[in-house]
């Protein structure tokens, strides 16, 4: 969308134009639902989060000054609504990530030295997708959400920290551990010669 179209759309939305609102909802809902589904395992929860996000967005649209694309602004609201929904569903204490991290010998060498991954295994799309998605699902929630925010939704460290209410250092630590754990989990299936 050109900048002039974006500004025109924003004016219509801020003026409460019904047709513009409906068009915007129809255009953005598929992508926003995909975002919510990445955070929430339950389809009903994902739909609730998207609906909550649109309601929040249109309550706040009058104050939106166009500092980013409208879709980018809405994306952040959907991510936040998804995190809120995730929190409301959290019941039991999460497992430690330590079990999934690389293991080390006393002298600092890896217990299982890294090996290259087989190129042919990296192009088998369906299997690869299932493998990686299952790996992400195995991460403890506090690490999975950081990985989703930073590596998948591409928020920067500061944005992720603000959204989660933690320090930027905590975001960096969790992200690095989440990546290490995910690497460990998918490594056996991707190593050359396995």
């Amino acid at each position: 969308m050109h900048d002039s179209d974006e500004r025109a759309l924003l004016r219509l939305l801020q003026a409460g134009d019904d047709a513009a609102y409906e068009e915007f909802v129809r255009a953005q809902t598929p992508r926003m639902l995909s975002v919510a589904r990445r955070f929430l395992r339950n389809e009903e929860d994902a739909r609730d989060a998207v609906q909550d996000a649109f309601v929040s967005a249109f309550r706040a649209i009058g104050n939106f000054e166009g500092g980013s694309r409208i879709a980018t602004w809405l994306h952040r609201i959907v991510v936040n609504a998804s995190l809120m929904k995730l929190r409301s569903k959290r019941r039991k204490p999460e497992e430690s990530i330590e079990e999934l991290l690389p293991r080390w010998q006393e002298d600092g060498h890896a217990a299982r030295p890294a090996a290259p991954w087989a190129a042919e295994k990296l192009v088998e799309q369906d299997e690869l997708r299932k493998l990686v998605q299952a790996g992400i699902e195995r991460l403890p929630e506090s690490h999975r959400e950081v990985l989703l925010l930073r590596d998948i939704e591409e928020l920067d460290t500061q944005e992720a920290a603000e959204m989660l209410g933690i320090s930027t250092n905590a975001v960096k630590t969790r992200l690095h551990r989440a990546r290490q754990a995910l690497r460990e989990v998918i490594d056996p299936a991707l190593r050359e010669g396995t």
Binding site: L122, L128, D151, I186
Partner: peptide, 9 residues
């Protein structure tokens, strides 16, 4: 791993 996370999600 970082690249695959994005690609697969």
């Amino acid at each position: 791993t970082v690249r695959l996370g994005k690609q697969c999600c």
